[in-house]
Design a protein around this nucleic acid. Sequence first.
DNA 1: TTAGTGTACTAAGTTTATTAATACACTTGT
DNA 2: ACAAGTGTATTAATAAACTTAGTACACTAA
Lengths: 121, 121
Amino acid sequence: MILIDYRDARPIYEQVVERFKMMILRGVLCPDDKIPSVRNLAVDLSINPNTIQRAYSELERQGYIYTVKGKGNFVSDNGQLLLRFKEELFAELKKICKEAFEVGITEEEIIQNIRGGEKDD
Amino acid sequence: MILIDYRDARPIYEQVVERFKMMILRGVLCPDDKIPSVRNLAVDLSINPNTIQRAYSELERQGYIYTVKGKGNFVSDNGQLLLRFKEELFAELKKICKEAFEVGITEEEIIQNIRGGEKDD
DNA sequence: TTAGTGTACTAAGTTTATTAATACACTTGT
DNA sequence: ACAAGTGTATTAATAAACTTAGTACACTAA
């Protein structure tokens, strides 16, 4: 269900958070779907339950999942999530563009690059 | 000459590297310009000389500066630098766009966002 | 009752970033 | 030759973040 990339410099819990976020935003996981238990996923990924717990706490904090004690963790039904994610993404884009403008890269050059680079998805 | 942002999550040496890279790419620092000595900059920024040394080693590794033992560190004359930096920046952009496409954001939406967001630079 | 669930806690190990102190070799100007 | 300034290397210590390990407790469902 989830894969960890050990060449990725980011901590494991962060990778887990990102994978679930994308699955939820893409609709692969639907509202009220049950996600794996802390212990189960830990065994599957061969990592410590504490690390999964940390990822799930973060997902709950960001509103992606909700917890029912004794039952498990479930996908939230939160229409704001995609909107908020968009804003975050656009903020990142803006930051990179700003850096680009500083060294003389033009807006058109950036746009051409985006237009041309859509094929390898 | 350089400022450190202690709210920035990135390590100090990385911030120093980034500041010099931008100054070199923008032409604020020219080829063969002398940059501050390890000890001098350390005193100026109130940080350890080892941290500056680490930043300078990284800048040298990436081709932005060259070292003359006993004399100091100087800005490289390397025409490839801007080109390589562009490629890195475009790679970052591509990564973000890919993530955006995954959750249904369109290319046009991204481009509109870039076009609209140029004013606050 | 038993098994599965989330949650909390302490302890230990690892890695990275940073500071500290010292030492050595080189260059420059006197 | 000397002194001051330079890059470079080394060792040690500290702090923070990440991860693992082990244990314990409360809740839910069959």
